[in-house]
Nucleic acid binder design. Structure first.
Lengths: 106, 106
DNA sequence: TCCCTACTCCTAGTCATACGAGGTATCAAC
DNA sequence: GTTGATACCTCGTATGACTAGGAGTAGGGA
């Protein structure tokens, strides 16, 4: 996939995954890869800064957890995050439809 | 629309519009706005640099035209542009489907 | 014992590119 | 003579995905 393809759509994906249930970073990445049939395989340098950004925007909240000696940061949606997810879904819908229309029409 | 939404997908749209018939910049923008029901309304600071970029990558070719005293630069697809368009269509398809899968699955 | 794989997190710097703001010029219509 | 549509351009900025590095835990195989 091209370098810029994901830009502007990553937040939607992360919010959607976390919206389906609290999860830690590594787990989010695997859920995403799985749900997309391997197409969406995020490098860590993409994943973690994005999660931090969403937390600093108050769309996600996090807490540390330790399982089997390993530390994890578990993320969950805030109420604002839920709203943002709904908005982003709508935006994606209209964008995707606009692109499809162009591809069909022209 | 968010500032970054279009990133990585603009080339596809421009190639698709020109692929349907040679056109000059202003006309491309209007075809795009029309075909997308107004969703895709490119500012000129987006449109023209993108067209120049595509030409410098040899995906578009251009020639000057004068109609009613006004100069226009008319763009057409090169053979490489046709190939790129086909590739970009496929990429869009798999990306869009991956996103939809994530939104549906999770 | 050592190593490799899987797990789990982090950050500094780079690069590509959409966009805002500003500029130029023609023509028709009011 | 001013406005609005047509038609093009470029410079600078901001954003954000990614590369490349680093850190540590745990388990299994050689």
């Amino acid at each position: 996939m091209k370098r810029e393809t994901l830009k502007g759509h990553l937040d939607l994906l992360l919010l959607a995954v976390v919206g389906a249930g609290a999860a830690h970073g590594y787990h989010i990445a695997r859920r995403l890869a799985e749900a997309s049939g391997g197409t969406l395989d995020l490098p860590e340098g993409t994943l973690y800064p994005a999660l931090h950004r969403l937390e600093s925007k108050n769309l996600l909240s996090s807490s540390w957890d330790t399982v089997g000696g390993r530390r994890r940061r578990v993320y969950d949606l805030t109420p604002e995050g839920k709203d943002a997810l709904a908005r982003e879904r709508l935006e994606w819908g209209s964008f995707a439809q606009a692109v499809e229309s162009v591809l069909d029409t022209v």
